[in-house]
Structure formats: structure tokens, C-alpha cells
Design a protein around this nucleic acid. Structure first.
Lengths: 110, 110
DNA sequence: TAAAGTACCTACTAAATGGTTATAATAATT
DNA sequence: AATTATTATAACCATTTAGTAGGTACTTTA
């Protein structure tokens, strides 16, 4: 009698999907990256581009993304203040993920 | 004097990225779909495949995925119980998203 | 004189997520 | 005879995440 034991390789902390999700799995994260995209976006523009997000979440996520080097922040010492956000090289590399989300959404959900 | 007004198209409830994220943005969701992949996975196998997830979250997410028709559930009326999970056609269509997450993770995070 | 716009920050509340323990029923293993 | 394995559900509390409301400091517009 043979033992049929299925080999399961557990996805631990080195699993690439898990690592990506640790960084990107928030409710708003990928949407913000997608909205910035290849553009230069100011804080207020992003706020208007993403109706429904609270100012707190937007600034919190932007700060997180800057910390994790997905987004560049350029502040001008002017009054009224002017701050521009762009994607870093690393941030640009998340766009294919957002593109797949967009593809799945438009083909199956909308 | 010209007015430079940048046109911003707000991403509302019909934005495909948003619609996808509403369904998939959880911390574990895409990881579970990725683990099931093209296989037939039992509850216990998934539990071992995703170390760190609590039983509660796993069953909660599986129920949600079944409800949203991304996952099929086949329960055998046996004792001890045996339940098999597979991806539906719709669920299979989320795999490209997980693949991009895996790609991003292995190239930039690991 | 008042309101609107700019990019935030802080305190508080609400919701989502996570963890633990207990329960079920029965076959196979120790 | 007791333990382990199986797939859940339910109750409870702790923690994390998200949302709400208000304020700051200054300028321009009405």
C-alpha cells in the first residue's frame, strides 16, 4: 500500500506574494499609486482624483509610500503650500499590478 | 493671461481598479487565491500552506470567496469531514494579478 | 469682512482584523 | 482507553486600520 502524501510547500516570510502584500495590500495603496501613475500629482489633485478617501488616509498612505521609496515628494517653500508627488523607479514597477487589477475589474466586475 | 487647469478625471465607483480592490484588497485574499491556484486544496492543506493565518481568517476569507464566486467548495459528507476548494473560472482570472505581485516581490523585495 | 484654497496634523470614534478557547462527531492510530 | 486528525462554528477580547471632525497658517478672491 502506497502512501499518497501531497507535498505542500508553505509560503513563509520569503514568499514574494506575501512580501508584496505586506507593502501594498491596503485598501487605498495601489489605487493611489495608479492615480499618480506617470504624472506629477499634487496633494489636492489626488484628493479630487480619489473621491471617498479621507484626508488622513491620503496623507498617511503618501507618507508610508514615501518612506518605502515608492513615491517621491517635492515640497515648494511657498504660500500657499505646493507639494508634488511622483512615482519612483520602484513605484513605477507596481503599475503592472494595478493594470492587472484594472483589467480584471473592467472585464468581470463593471 | 492663460488659465492652466489640469483636467483630473475622478475615479469613482466605476473605476475598475477600485472595484477590484473592493473585492481583493484584503491582507490574505490574493495570497489564498494564489495558493489554491490550479490545484484542488483542502482546508488543512491551505492552513499549512499559509503559515501565520489564523483559522478564523482562513475560513472567513474562504467563505467570502465562495460567496463572491471566486472559489468553489465541495464538501464530502464524511467523518472526519473533507472539503475541497478550487478556483472558479472567475477566480482563475485573478491569478495574473497574483503573478504580478510575485514578480514585483521577487525582483524588488526579497 | 468673509469665504475659499493650500497641505497638512491631532484627537477621537468606528470598523476590520487577529487570537484564543470551546464545541461537534467519528475513524484511525498509539 | 486515550489521543490525533478532520472541518468547521461561536463567543470573547485585543489590536490594527480606517473614518470623522476640528484646527493651523497664510493668501487670494468675492
Amino acid at each position: 500500500m502506497e502512501k499518497k502524501s501531497k507535498i505542500i510547500l508553505p509560503c513563509d516570510e520569503k514568499c514574494p506574494v506575501r512580501a508584496s502584500l505586506t507593502l501594498l495590500s491596503g485598501k487605498w495603496t495601489l489605487l493611489i499609486l495608479f492615480q499618480i501613475n506617470k504624472k506629477v500629482m499634487r496633494y489636492g489633485e489626488l484628493k479630487r482624483a480619489i473621491p471617498g478617501i479621507s484626508e488622513k488616509m491620503l496623507i498617511q498612505e503618501l507618507n508610508m509610500l514615501v518612506e518605502n521609496k515608492l513615491v517621491n515628494k517635492k515640497a515648494y517653500p511657498e504660500i500657499p503650500p505646493k507639494v508634488e508627488y511622483t512615482l519612483t523607479e520602484l513605484g513605477l514597477k507596481t503599475l503592472p499590478i494595478a493594470d492587472k487589477l484594472a483589467e480584471f475589474g473592467s472585464e468581470n466586475l463593471i
